[in-house]
Amino acid sequence: MEVSQLPLPPSMVEMLHLAGFSVVADLDGISALELADELKMSPSDASQLLASVRSHGLRTPRAPPATSALELLHDERHSEKIVTAVKELDDLLGGGIPLRQLTELVGVPGVGKTQLSIQLALTVQIPRLFHGAEGEAVYIDTEGSFMAERAHAMAEALLRHLHATAHRAADHAQAAAAASLRASHLLERIHCFRVHDAAELLATVRSLNFFLAERKTVKLVVVDSVAFHFRHGVSDYTRRHQMLGQLTQALSEYATRHSLSVVMVNQVTTKVNDATNTSSIQPALGESWAHACNIQLVLHWMNGTRVARLCKGREPGWAEYQVTEEGVRSVQNPTRGADT
């Protein structure tokens, strides 16, 4: 690594260059006093500079090594998906929410974004015997909308479903696996963080690195919602933009490094078009944020039914769903279709 890559002011980099230090390894083993002498600077400045070099330059490499697309193809084909429990929607998604990607759930209040998020935190735990990811979930709650009671009800419904599946297939191994699970076990494997402002959110996401390194079984990180604090708490637009960028960078890194799925809930905003004097509903947080997700699911109402529309990531399409006592489920006689 070259010294010009370090986050140092250009004047400092120039001083290092003039003294003959061009790569970070040149500074290896040098003392602050020696450096101060070489650079004709005060020892305290030199030790500060060295500290900065050590923290940035001599760390383990930042970018993981290359993987061939062939390995990735294998991973993509064989990795587990997190089912939404809405069959039509799972079909659109190619089996469910995939790992190693960022999925955005956008929708008006009350359409079921949080319901679906909580359900995903449960379905990610479906045992491997049932072709699930058998992982744990991290739930970052910014709005205080996580309802443990609701999660408990959904967990029991999920267990009933697993029992029924095992019974239908007359699979003893499945039956035993289902019998060993309790709703309380499922809730234990959802790790909740309640954050109260944008700074806390960013800090939580960044420090998640250590948490994920310890708990390798985490396969899903939910942020419900990303929009809330950023829309109201951060008024400086530039600052907001940068913080959102850092948030996505960290989440993308975890998604790849720990092969987990990231689900980000976003709110909607009304965009008024001055020229045509019309208004439309758009995802909040602006266009630069829209690059962040790999898969975008827009949840909205259509003729009195809830509809999930896949807008980004795969071939677009939509599926109807309903929110029942058991959780998010498909509609009995769905009029579902890929748009033609």
Binding site: R62, A69, L70, L73, Q249, R257
Partner: peptide, 10 residues
């Protein structure tokens, strides 16, 4: 496809 190398850098 084995000749296509993918690197992540966030």
């Amino acid at each position: 496809l084995g000749q296509l190398l993918v690197r992540c850098a966030t």
